[in-house]
Design a binder for these strands. Structure first.
Lengths: 241, 241
DNA sequence: ACCTGAACACCGTTCAAGT
DNA sequence: ACCTGAACACCGTTCAAGT
C-alpha cells in the first residue's frame, strides 16, 4: 500500500463506475482495507481526486520539445486530439478540470508543451495566451459535452444514434426546436459519430485559421499587400520581417 | 408551494452556497417544509437541478431574431459575453452544463438564437455547426475555468491577484514551470482581471477571424484573387457570388 | 508506522401513514 | 391532493484505540 497504488486503484474505479459512484469507502473495499486506512496516505477525497486527475493527464502523448522543425499547426492539432482523447477515455477528468486547480506535474507538462508550440506561431505575447485559450478551452468544452453524452448513452443502454432519436422525440412538435434538427440534417453526416468528427475538425480549422489571421493583422499594411493570402509558411518568419 | 417557487429557492441556495453544499434537505428547510414534500413536485434532485439550470439560462439577453440588419459579428460577441456572464453569476450552471442534457426551453431558445446568427455568417451548412461549437464551447470552457477560480478565491478569502501569488508560490523552483510565469508577464496586464478580459477578447477575435477565413476558403480561387483581404462586409453576400 | 471501529453529521430516496 | 416520520442504504471525516 502506497500513494501510487491507491491512485491507480482510484483511476480504475473512476473509469469503471464514474465520479458520482466513487467513494472512499468503495475504494478501500477495492483495496481490501478499511475505509480510514486510505486517509493515512491522503489528506482528503479531493486530494486523492487531484492525484488521480494528474495521473490520467500523464497518459497524454506530448510532442518532443526539441523538435522545433515540425509544423506548429500539426503539433497543435495533435495536442488537441490528445486532449480530447483524454476526456473521452476518462470522462471524470473532464468533470474535474473545470473545478480543480490542476497544477500537478503532468498537467504542467501539458501546458508547458502547449506554450512551447504556441510560441512558434509568431503571435506576439499579448495575443498568445488568448489564442491558446481559444484552442484548448474549446477542446475542453467540446470533449466534456461529448463525453457526458456518451455516458448518458451507456447509462441508457443505447447507441449514440439511438439516443439522439429519443432526444429528438422529446423535442419534436415545439416549433422553435425544429430548425435545430434541420440544421443538423443540412450539415450532412449520417451518424452522430461522423457529425462529431467533422464538427471537431472544422472547429480546429476555424481556430487555427484565426491564429493565422491574428498573425497577419500584426503585420504592417505594406506587408499585408505583399502577402495577401496570409502566412502559408510556418508563421515564425513573421516575427522577423 | 409550486414548482416555480421551489426552483427559485433552489437557484437562490445554489447561488449562495454552491452545488457541493446544495441538498434536498437544506432546500426543504429553506422552504420551511419537510425534506420529502419537495418530492411531490419534483422527481429527483437531478430533475430539480435541470429546472434550476434552465431558469438561470432564462436570464440570458438574447438578440431580437427579427433584427437581420445587425452585424452578425457583434451579435455573436454579445451572445458570447452573455454566456460568459451566466457562468460567472451562477457558477453551479457551468458545473452542470457539461454533464446534463440541457434541452429546457431557455437553453433551446439560446441555441436557437445562436443558430440564427450563425446562418448569417455565410458559412455553408457543413461548417456552420463546427464553427458554432468552436465559439460556444470555448466560452463554456473558458468561463467554467474562470468561475471556479473565482470560487476558490472566495473560499480562501483572497482576491484573485493574491490567490495567483499563492499558486505561484507552490510552483516556483520547478524549472519547467517558470516560463509559464514569464509568458504571463510578457503578455502584459498587471492584474488577473485585466489579463482575463484581454484573453477572452483576443480568443473571440481569433475565432471570429477564423470564421471569416473559413468563409473565404469556400470561394473559388478566382473569387479569392479578386478579394484578397477576405470579407470585410457582412459575409452574407458571400453566399451569392 | 500503519491500520481499525465506533461514532458524528450528513446524504437521496422509498414507503406507509397521516390530513 | 398534499405533507410527514421513520427508515434504508449510503456518504466524508474525526478520533481514540489498537498492533
Amino acid at each position: 500500500m502506497d500513494r501510487e497504488k491507491i491512485t491507480a486503484a482510484a483511476v480504475r474505479l473512476l473509469d469503471a463506475d464514474g465520479l458520482a459512484k466513487f467513494s472512499m469507502r468503495r475504494l478501500a473495499a477495492e483495496l481490501g482495507v478499511t475505509a480510514m486506512s486510505v486517509y493515512w496516505y491522503v489528506d482528503s477525497k479531493d486530494d486523492l481526486l487531484e492525484l488521480a486527475m494528474d495521473a490520467a493527464e500523464g497518459e497524454l502523448d506530448l510532442p518532443d520539445p526539441a523538435d522545433t522543425e515540425a509544423d506548429w499547426r500539426e503539433q497543435l492539432r495533435h495536442l488537441a486530439y490528445e486532449y480530447r482523447r483524454l476526456f473521452n477515455v476518462h470522462p471524470w477528468v473532464s468533470q474535474m478540470v473545470g473545478s480543480y486547480l490542476n497544477i500537478g506535474p503532468h498537467a504542467m507538462a501539458f501546458s508547458h508543451a502547449a506554450q512551447g508550440i504556441m510560441r512558434r506561431t509568431g503571435l506576439p505575447a499579448p495575443q498568445l495566451t488568448g489564442a491558446m485559450a481559444a484552442l484548448f478551452q474549446f477542446v475542453y468544452g467540446y470533449s466534456t459535452t461529448e463525453a457526458s453524452w456518451n455516458g448518458r448513452c451507456r447509462a441508457a443502454g443505447l447507441s449514440a444514434d439511438e439516443y439522439l432519436s429519443t432526444v429528438y422525440g422529446k423535442i419534436e412538435g415545439r416549433a422553435e426546436y425544429e430548425d435545430s434538427l434541420r440544421l443538423m440534417e443540412q450539415g450532412g453526416g449520417s451518424t452522430v459519430h461522423e457529425m462529431r468528427e467533422r464538427d471537431f475538425t472544422v472547429a480546429l480549422d476555424c481556430i487555427l485559421a484565426g491564429m493565422d489571421a491574428l498573425t497577419v493583422a500584426t503585420h504592417t499594411t505594406r506587408d499585408r499587400a505583399e502577402n495577401p493570402h496570409g502566412p502559408s509558411q510556418p508563421a515564425q518568419s513573421a516575427q522577423r520581417p
